Amino acid sequence: MSLDRRMFLRATAVAGGAAAFSGALWHQAFAAGPAQPGPSPYGPLQAADANGLQLPEGFTSRIVARSLQRVEGTRHTWHPAPDGGACFPDGDGWIYVSNSEVPLVGGVSAIRFDASGKITSAYRTLNGTTLNCAGGATPWNTWLSCEEHDLGLVWETDPRGQQKAVARPAMGRFKHEAAAADPERKVVYLTEDQSDGCFYRFRPRTWGDLSSGTLEVLVGNGTGPVEWAKVPSPNIWLTPTREQVAGAMRFRGGEGCHYTHGVCYFTTKGDNRVWAYDAAAEQLDIAYAPDLVTEGEAPLRGVDNVTADAAGDLFVAEDGDNMEINLITTDGIVTPFLRILGHDESEITGPAFSPDGSRLYFSSQRGKSGFIAGTDGYTFEVTGPFRH
């Protein structure tokens, strides 16, 4: 099937706009198969700017933080190995939170911006945890910071730093990666960074209170209809959560996770797939995979953290490869959005949009040095005409 034909099918399915890109329409959009390479809606990448970023025309960048250095205008020292992140509204400005993927001291830091984008403060919101990898924002404006080790917990944190962070053991003890809240079904989806990991959802007893509820695991035989089964012992176990339910689906290293327009997208690094779980229909499909590219060369490899803009386009960060954030557009095109030069041994982490959608934040976890401890991490901001 030609690329033009694929684009036509997808464009037809999403003709109602991004708000309609959900449920049955999502399945129509991808009836032609997973996303294929094509032109970016933002145009080609330009020459690298002073910060080493190749961006489309009309976009600019700045470095807002460096690991083990004070955040400009504050007395706060930015953490090593910046990982998952999210933005939250705060008065007339906003806050960007970022995990630290190091052992023992991990935790979360935050940067507050005023309405003009000026940094006004930076501070810690969680201390003394270990290997805080990714996570997810909640509709009630807290940040779920996930520990990536066998007995890892989800910590619910206050981006403003005013409330004490609280562990949420009911959400399971396992090698957590990312979380994504689904306010329609009132659940939180969770990925697991194991080579034979699972995909979970947590159903809190009361929406907005994660202290108690039911952890469930996805059960099925591949793409198509799937269902959920209760994990018997999510918190205190001798048998790991991923081994407790017969028929639980296996995924090769769960990474990023993001819910938008009725679909939960998540990535798996072992096979470079971007999965799409249609929450209403309870069906699983593949939104992108390099081995399923039939039109040209696959631009996206090393899939990792993922977010989406207001238009419904996905922004997928690469762990390694050529250090890009790639778009997967609502019409099924996969294409580079930006590239970082000179950070060859690093990975891109923590992509998140400001509340108004005009700025994209992300980090290069190990920076130019590539040192595994992440002491050379960079956190960037990109501003420009993002689609809405």
Rank of each mutant, 00 (worst) to 15 (best):
Y277P: 04
T157S: 13
S145A: 14
S354T: 00
G38K: 06
V97R: 07
E381D: 02
P290Y: 11
P89R: 13
R66I: 02
R185P: 00
N326V: 00
A165P: 10
T74E: 11
A311T: 01
V293Y: 01
Y259V: 05
N272F: 10
P204E: 08
E324T: 15
Q365L: 07
R5S: 14
L218H: 08
R339Q: 12
F251P: 05
C146W: 03
E148A: 09
Q163C: 13
S145Y: 06
A180I: 07
I95V: 10
R173T: 11
A115D: 04
T12C: 15
G91Q: 05
A134R: 06
E177R: 05
A48Q: 08
V231F: 08
G350A: 15
N221R: 15
A308N: 05
I286R: 12
L25M: 10
T142N: 12
C257S: 02
F362W: 09
R185D: 00
G161C: 09
L210D: 10
C198E: 10
G332E: 10
L360A: 08
A18K: 08
D278Q: 08
G213C: 06
T214Y: 07
T329H: 07
G296Q: 06
M249C: 01
D271V: 15
A311D: 12
T268G: 09
C257P: 01
Y123V: 12
M7Y: 08
A352W: 02
G224N: 10
A181M: 08
L218T: 01
E227F: 12
T77G: 02
W228R: 07
A352R: 02
A122Y: 02
V108T: 14
T260Y: 03
G342E: 05
V64H: 04
A47Q: 13
G367L: 03
R66Y: 08
A246D: 14
G84W: 01
C198Q: 11
A373T: 11
N132M: 14
T267A: 10
S211P: 03
V187T: 04
E216P: 02
N51V: 04
C198T: 07
W140G: 09
G374N: 07
D4F: 03
I325C: 07
D304V: 04
I119N: 03
I333Q: 02
V187A: 09
